[in-house]
C-alpha cells in the first residue's frame, strides 16, 4: 500500500521513548524517496496520456485523472512523513544543548546523521554567541540554589586535570566525592558522569 514505508519511518519515532533519538534511518528514507520518484513518473505518464487524448487536464474527470490524483496524494503524504521525521529529530537535537551541554556524548553522536551533527554545532554556536553578547549563561539551572556549593560523587571516568571555574584543577577519580560549585558540577551531572548527594 502507498505510504506504508513512510509511515514506518514515523512509527520509528513514536516507538522510542519520548525525547530519545534512534539511529538515523537513511536506508528507509532512501526507499521512501525512491517510492516518491516512482509516483512522480507514474503521475507524469498519466498526465501525458490525458494530453495525448486531447483532454483538458484541469477539468476532465476520467479514470486517468483519479489515478493521477491518488499518486499526487501519495506524494504529499510521503513528503509529510519525511518532513515530520526530520523535524521532530531536529527538535530533540535542539534540546540537547540545554540538557547535556555543548559536548555530545558518544552514544548520542553516533545516532545522528552528518547534517544533524552540523545542525547541532551551528545551533550551539549561535546560542553561545548570544549568551556571550548577553554576558549571561542561560543553560544553568533555572531555580536559584540555596547553597552555591553541592556535594557530588563521581560515577564514571572523567579524566584528570579538569580546570574548574576558580582556576584550580581537580582529580575526579571514579567513586571519589567532591564539594564543588554548583555551576561546575551541573554539566557533569547532566551527562551522567556524577551524581548529586543529598542529606
Amino acid at each position: 500500500m502507498y505510504g506504508r514505508k513512510a509511515c514506518q519511518l514515523v512509527k520509528e519515532l513514536a516507538s522510542g521513548e519520548k525525547g530519545q533519538l534512534t539511529l538515523f534511518n537513511i536506508d528507509l528514507i532512501d526507499q521512501v524517496i525512491a517510492e516518491c520518484s516512482q509516483h512522480h513518473l507514474e503521475l507524469q505518464s498519466l498526465i501525458r496520456k490525458m494530453q495525448e487524448q486531447g483532454l483538458d487536464v484541469q477539468t476532465s474527470r476520467n479514470a486517468d485523472h483519479y489515478g493521477a490524483l491518488i499518486h499526487h496524494l501519495a506524494l504529499v503524504r510521503n513528503k509529510r512523513c519525511l518532513m515530520a521525521y526530520v523535524h521532530n529529530r531536529a527538535e530533540v537535537i535542539q534540546s540537547l544543548i540545554w540538557k547535556v551541554g555543548p559536548i555530545l556524548p558518544q552514544q548520542i553522536e553516533e545516532r545522528l546523521s552528518h547534517s544533524e551533527e552540523e545542525y547541532f554545532k551551528k545551533h550551539s554556536s549561535a546560542l553561545k554567541s548570544y549568551m556571550s553578547r548577553l554576558e549571561l549563561d542561560l543553560t544553568v539551572d533555572m531555580v536559584p540554589p540555596k547553597d552555591p556549593y553541592i556535594q557530588v560523587r563521581v560515577i564514571d571516568d572523567i579524566g584528570e586535570g579538569i580546570v574548574l571555574s576558580d582556576d584550580k584543577t581537580a582529580n575526579f577519580a571514579p567513586h571519589s566525592m567532591h564539594f564543588l560549585k554548583r555551576t561546575d558540577a551541573e554539566q557533569f551531572i547532566s551527562r551522567g558522569l556524577m551524581e548529586e548527594l543529598t542529606g
Binding site: 540538557k99 551524581e195 548529586e196
Partner: peptide
C-alpha cells in the same frame, strides 16, 4: 525533597 540535578533523560 530530592536531588535537584539529574542525568539528562535523552541519555536513556
Amino acid at each position: 525533597g530530592g536531588p535537584r540535578f539529574q542525568r539528562a533523560s535523552v541519555l536513556g
